[in-house]
């Protein structure tokens, strides 16, 4: 399972703008490189990244071979209700990594 790192405040006031940062360990192999034997290294990249907050999508990104290894995303959203923030990464081999963080709104 890929190592992930997510930083967001545990609690926030209603209406407050919060910053959410996430990092995932992934080689993001472009498919353009060759190994020592001259054989192409197959492409292996994260294709999509999606974040939902209390069931509603708040951030989505499509990734391409030009993105560096271990992609980092940071974005802001408005704290509305207490709920789960769910992070989903999917790569082109069908591996899905999901992390859930609880946000409490006061």
């Amino acid at each position: 399972m890929a190592q992930t790192r997510i930083v967001l405040p545990k609690t926030a006031k209603k209406g407050e703008i919060i910053e959410i940062k996430s990092l995932i360990q992934h080689a993001m192999e472009t498919g353009h490189r060759r190994d020592n034997m001259g054989l192409a290294i197959p492409r292996h990249i994260i294709k999509s990244y999606r974040v939902t907050y209390a069931g509603e999508e708040v951030f989505r990104a499509e990734l391409f071979p030009g993105v560096a290894a271990n992609p980092y995303f940071s974005f802001t959203t408005v704290a509305t209700v207490s709920g789960d923030v769910v992070f989903t990464w999917e790569d082109d081999r069908g591996t899905v990594v999901t992390e859930t963080v609880r946000l409490t709104v006061t």
Binding site: Q3, T4, R5, V7, K21, L23, I24, Q25, A69, N70, Y72, S74
Partner: peptide, 13 residues
Amino acid sequence: DDARNPGMLWVEQ
């Protein structure tokens, strides 16, 4: 920034 430093992925591992 510990949230951004990719080396922290290895620290957590």
